[in-house]
């Protein structure tokens, strides 16, 4: 019933609970392998019926048609799917849509628009922080959250002193952005863009 609606899970083998692996689990599995979930995306409340297997990434792209968030590796290794949930950046590919009941989700579409750019989007353009652009929405969502993390005083692997407040130095930004891969190699320009938004000298 719902399977066909989700292109990326439609290829998975088991169409219903009846084919679950053990008879015991099938008996226990009362609600079908589908679920309702409701969360706020870019300020709008969205309610969905999803196969339980639907990741937050697939819910955004395939159900809500917010295709700004990109699917790269689909295994949490590349960061292209980075979105901000309740103020924190996460990999949308490694979390289930049904686990986000009531959450506030911000995607690249919610950060800014072509006529009203978020300062990080404007800085990426100014500093040429992309080439093919595929990783860019994830880079920008991550970059915005990284500056919030620095401002919140969260230390990193390269912070020399755990007890003092970190600063948005190039070394700090590079370490904190290591979960976002750019195969075009725009890294140094991304750091310049972030540095400018952080209010430091590029």
């Amino acid at each position: 019933m719902l399977i066909g609606a989700v292109a990326t899970t439609a290829t998975a083998a088991a169409p219903s609970v009846a084919s679950a692996q053990t008879p015991r689990a099938a008996t226990a599995a009362k609600p079908a392998a589908a679920s309702k979930v409701s969360f706020t995306v870019n300020g709008q409340v969205r309610s969905l019926d999803v196969d339980t297997r639907t990741t937050l990434l697939d819910a955004l792209r395939e159900h809500l048609h917010l295709s700004g968030t990109k699917k790269g590796c689909d295994h949490g290794q590349c960061g292209a799917c980075t979105v901000i949930v309740d103020g924190r950046r996460i990999n949308a590919c490694l979390t289930l849509a049904v686990m986000h009941e009531g959450d506030r989700i911000t995607t690249i579409e919610g950060l800014g628009t072509s006529v009203n750019l978020h300062p990080m989007q404007a800085a990426f353009i100014k500093h040429d922080g992309y080439q093919c652009g595929y990783c860019t929405p994830g880079q920008i969502c991550s970059a915005v959250a990284v500056l919030d993390e620095v401002n919140a005083g969260i230390p990193s692997h390269v912070s020399t002193d755990l007890l003092s407040s970190p600063e948005a130095t190039a070394a700090e930004l590079r370490e904190r952005m290591s979960g976002n891969i750019c195969r075009c190699g725009a890294y140094s320009n991304i750091i310049d863009a972030m540095t400018e938004v952080a209010g430091r000298k590029v």
Binding site: G76, R89, V146, E149, A152, L162, R176, S178, G179
Partner: peptide, 29 residues
């Protein structure tokens, strides 16, 4: 856990180990 003030002050090894692992996105989850 890595950012907790008491962990940073009294159990710095734990903060350091956590911050050496994974990515910011993964540590948030």
């Amino acid at each position: 856990l890595a950012a907790n003030q008491r962990v940073r002050r009294d159990y710095g090894l734990l903060s350091r180990a956590l911050l050496a692992g994974a990515s910011g996105q993964l540590r948030n989850k």
